[in-house]
Structures are given as structure tokens and as C-alpha cells.
Amino acid sequence: MLLPQIGAAVTVALTVTGQQLASALIDTRGLFRLPQRTFTAARGVGLLLLVAGSLLIQLF
């Protein structure tokens, strides 16, 4: 429903960002009987870059 207002690029960027944030949470907590993986600085930086990229696409 928001696609006409925010555009296709932002929609795709936010979808990918949301999936990556959810997967990091699942990995960190070991949900769904998956092995726990530690949250490293590299993963945090990668997630921050995804969020920053989504914001930049929206602003420009």
C-alpha cells in the first residue's frame, strides 16, 4: 500500500533490511532450535549499513 508513496527501491531495501535484522535476532537467540551464533561487531556494522542505506535511498 505504501509502494506509490515511498517507491520500489525503498520497499526492497526495507524488506531486505527487515529480513537481515530478523535473521540476526534468530541467530543470536538460537530460536527455532537453531545453533546460537554470537553477535559480532562485523554483523552489527553490516546491519547499520543496511539501515543507513535504506535511509539514504529514502532521502535522496
Rank of each mutant, 00 (worst) to 15 (best):
Q20V: 15
R37W: 05
G44L: 03
G30L: 01
L21S: 10
A8M: 14
D27Y: 07
A8E: 12
V12A: 14
T17S: 07
T28H: 11
G30D: 07
F60C: 12
L31E: 08
L31V: 09
L25K: 08
L49Y: 04
A24I: 11
P35L: 10
L21F: 01
L47H: 01
L34I: 04
T17L: 00
T38S: 13
G30R: 03
Q5H: 14
A8P: 05
S54E: 00
A8R: 11
A22D: 14
R43L: 05
L14P: 02
Q5L: 15
G44N: 04
L14E: 00
T40E: 04
L47F: 06
T38W: 14
L2N: 10
L2A: 08
S54Y: 00
Q19F: 08
A22S: 13
R43W: 06
A42S: 10
I26P: 04
R43H: 13
T11A: 08
P4Q: 03
R37S: 02
F60Q: 14
V45N: 01
G7F: 01
I26S: 00
A52T: 02
T11R: 06
T15H: 02
T15Q: 10
F32L: 12
I26V: 03
L3A: 11
I6G: 05
F39G: 08
A22F: 14
L47A: 02
L34G: 09
A8G: 10
Q58E: 09
L49V: 01
L50I: 07
G44E: 00
G18W: 03
A13M: 02
A24N: 06
A22T: 14
D27E: 09
A52Q: 07
L50R: 05
L21Y: 09
S54P: 01
L49I: 06
P35A: 02
F60H: 09
T17R: 05
A41G: 15
I6E: 03
I26W: 04
G53I: 07
T40R: 05
S54A: 15
T38K: 14
A24D: 02
A8L: 09
T28N: 12
I6Y: 07
L25Y: 10
A22E: 15
G44M: 01
I26H: 05
L50C: 13
L31G: 03
L50Q: 06
R33I: 11
L55H: 02
F32V: 10
A42C: 09
R33V: 08
V45K: 02
F60D: 11
R33F: 10
I57R: 00
T15N: 08
Q5T: 15
G30S: 03
I26A: 07
V51C: 07
G18E: 04
V51T: 00
L21R: 06
L48N: 06
Q36I: 07
T40V: 07
G53H: 02
G46T: 00
D27T: 00
G7L: 08
I57L: 13
G7H: 07
G46L: 11
L34S: 06
A9H: 05
T17C: 11
P4E: 01
L2H: 00
L25D: 12
P4N: 03
L3D: 09
S23H: 12
G18S: 08
R37E: 04
L3K: 12
L14G: 01
L31P: 08
I6S: 06
A24Y: 09
L34E: 00
A22L: 15
L25Q: 12
